[in-house]
């Protein structure tokens, strides 16, 4: 077992621990910290697998933007409400049972599926360095790229609309 494999297992264990802590912690800020550690461990897994570009963007976008926004909002909304005292809803037992069933079903289907089929003649393995990846990305998937920019514009307009409607209902 090389040190690379050990590191992948270590990051996997950290991600799993972060996920479990997310369900158990009481304060939303602790949940956010657990999620940040889970995301950083996943970025470590991607880096160990050689997919550097996804690892860097995971930290940049998820930890550096999405989780910063989440931590900011948790800071702002530190209301002492009943959800601090009673963490779990009425669905605790059915939820856990269903989760275990789902994980079991997915695991069994994965074991039964076996190795995926690699199409013959698919060409060389793709390079996940920044320049070859971005050239391939924009050569074949430029339409998806443009559509995501439309999605982002829609998200900006929607966010402004929500904030303005909230302001109108306040006054």
């Amino acid at each position: 077992m090389t040190i690379d494999q050990l590191l992948v297992y270590f990051f996997g264990a950290c991600a799993l621990l972060g996920g479990v802590l997310m369900l158990v912690a009481r304060h939303p800020m602790r949940v956010a910290l657990a999620l940040i550690s889970c995301m950083l461990s996943l970025a470590g897994i991607y880096a160990m697998l050689g997919v550097h570009v996804v690892a860097v963007f995971q930290v940049l976008i998820y930890v550096g933007a999405v989780m910063v926004f989440m931590v900011y909002v948790i800071m702002l909304l530190d209301v002492r409400d009943p959800s601090f005292v009673r963490r779990y809803s009425r669905m605790l037992l059915p939820g856990v049972v269903l989760g275990a069933l789902l994980a079991g079903a997915l695991g069994i289907s994965a074991i039964r599926l076996g190795a995926p089929v690699i199409q013959p003649g698919a060409g060389a393995a793709p390079s996940y360095l920044v320049q070859p990846f971005s050239v391939e990305f924009l050569r074949e998937y430029w339409l998806h790229f443009e559509l995501t920019s439309v999605l982002l514009v829609a998200a900006v307009v929607a966010a402004i609309a929500i904030i303005r409607s909230g302001r109108r209902s306040d006054g």
Partner: peptide, 21 residues
């Protein structure tokens, strides 16, 4: 590393979380 500048910005994002925490 090939993605030099991106790593700079990625780690600067973690500094923000430290200051806010």
């Amino acid at each position: 590393i090939d993605a030099g500048i991106l790593i700079v910005f990625a780690f600067s994002g973690i500094t923000i979380i430290g200051a806010m925490l």
